[in-house]
Amino acid sequence: MERATTLIDLPAGPVEYRLEERGPRVALMLHGGHMRAALPLGEEVFADAGCTVLAVSRPGYGRTPLATGAAPDRFADALRDLCGRLGITSLTAVVGQSAGGPTALTLAARHPDLVERLILQSAVGLLPWPDRRTRVGAGIVFRPRVEPVTWALLHTLMRRAPGLGLRLLLPDLTRRSVTELLSALTTAQRAMLLELFGQMRAGAGFANDVRTMTAPHHLDALTAQAARLRQPTLVIAARDDGSVSYAHAQSLSNAIPNARLITSTAPSHMIWLGDDYPDIAATITAFLTRQPH
């Protein structure tokens, strides 16, 4: 699953990215927590539509340091510079997944001349996130000196005791019972999750996400930016998401003037594993070709 990436020095600092060129249309991927540019997730629909995929590691993840822009507005400006350096003058879509949602929204609001469309998938919205239990837990297991050990243990579990590893991680992703969720997974889906979880890392990024997205001034700024958005926007979320509640999607669709909310039947945060994802993918493909107003 892991793919080669490039590190570029920008005025704001280093940014790790992966560029897979296919055509003139470009989709920028902003992944969520514990993810980085080297790990593709949910990109197939854009590749199948002939889009060039530009994936970046957000600050604190992969090889992008926090100093490049710990706050979404600073990193949004760095992304503008990155596109300029790569000769990209227009982004067909900016895709914000989970904790990558606020940066995607901020980029669209701050640089409307660059961003044509916005797609938010299981995205953190205009409400405090995460909940208190997750904040407390993250403060323990993702402290700088503890985080490498935490993920090393989880990676070992995924290899040696995959069933136990999934049972440890899946409760944070679903509102359903883990037994029900595991029984619904196909062999391919189970293998995909094991590979993905076996390569994730938090770095300094997840702790920064938690600090940023619970700050009142961040929520106020994000709400104001959402109201200014004029790009067509898709907000996609599942009611059974146990990581980012469905209320976040509702907050986004209510605040963004030109937003459409699509409710996934996926049994967890991972909308790509829902039975209705082929229909959602078709909607995304049509959205990518629709003329933006």
Rank of each mutant, 00 (worst) to 15 (best):
V26G: 03
A226E: 04
G274E: 01
E147C: 10
A238P: 03
L193Q: 05
A70I: 12
D275R: 04
R135G: 06
R159E: 11
V141C: 11
A266T: 02
A238F: 01
R133G: 07
A259Q: 08
E116W: 05
A38W: 06
M213A: 03
T106P: 11
V244P: 04
L173S: 12
R22I: 00
A49W: 04
A12M: 11
V53Y: 02
S177H: 01
P40S: 08
L126C: 15
A27H: 03
A247V: 00
V235D: 02
R117P: 05
E147M: 07
S177M: 00
T6K: 11
G242N: 07
R290Q: 15
A249R: 03
P144D: 11
R133N: 03
V141F: 15
P24H: 07
V141W: 12
R74A: 15
R80N: 14
P72E: 08
V210E: 08
R58W: 06
V53W: 01
R58C: 04
H293M: 13
T187P: 00
R228S: 14
R290W: 00
A191E: 14
V95L: 10
A191L: 07
T134C: 08
L105P: 02
I262T: 02
A71C: 01
G62M: 06
R80K: 15
M200T: 14
H248N: 10
A138G: 15
R190A: 02
R211W: 04
S122T: 05
A249C: 11
R211Y: 05
G165Q: 04
D241C: 09
L39E: 06
H269W: 04
P257D: 05
R167Y: 03
A123F: 03
A238V: 01
A207S: 14
L288I: 05
P40N: 06
E116L: 09
T89M: 01
Y61C: 11
L229K: 07
Q225S: 07
G42K: 03
R36P: 00
I8R: 10
G33K: 01
L173H: 08
D172M: 12
F197K: 00
A259F: 10
F75C: 02
A286S: 14
R160I: 14
P72I: 08
S57L: 12
S253E: 10
R135N: 02
V26C: 10
S57G: 13
V115E: 04
L82F: 11
T68P: 09
A207T: 12
G274L: 03
Q225W: 08
L229S: 10
P40F: 05
Q199R: 15
R211H: 11
D276H: 00
P162A: 06
L107I: 14
T156W: 13
T156Q: 13
G139Y: 11
D276A: 01
D77E: 15
H218C: 13
Q231L: 00
A237P: 04
D172R: 12
L82N: 12
A152M: 10
R63N: 11
D220C: 09
P278K: 08
R133T: 14
S98D: 13
A226Q: 02
T134V: 15
L114N: 12
